[in-house]
């Protein structure tokens, strides 16, 4: 068993499934993301992540397109 590894969502390769720890954005944005399902503890399935451009992430049953800047601000394990 290895240690828990924290990293930004943008560094997770496509096909993996991670758990959201924290979002480091402003309060307004965090609340909006939360209502879209990005709540701490939520499982995120990364469907697509190429080195640039937006990511496609499956969260709470929906596929969401997420800007790279946003994905940088999400800490996952």
């Amino acid at each position: 068993m290895h240690d828990r590894l924290y990293r930004p969502l943008s560094a997770v390769s496509a096909g993996s499934s991670v758990r959201l720890r924290d979002v480091c954005a402003g309060q307004k944005l965090e609340a909006r993301l939360a209502s879209l399902g990005f709540v701490p503890g939520a499982t995120l399935d990364v469907c697509r992540n190429t080195c640039h451009g937006p990511l496609v992430v499956q969260v709470k049953g929906s596929r969401l397109m997420l800007g790279r800047g946003m994905a940088d601000k999400m800490v996952v394990e």
């Binding site: 954005a25 944005l29 993301l33 929906s62 596929r63 969401l64 397109m65 997420l66 800047g69």
Partner: peptide
Amino acid sequence: GDSAPFVMELPP
């Protein structure tokens, strides 16, 4: 200025 970060649903 930078463009805002964005999220958008890809509906089925």
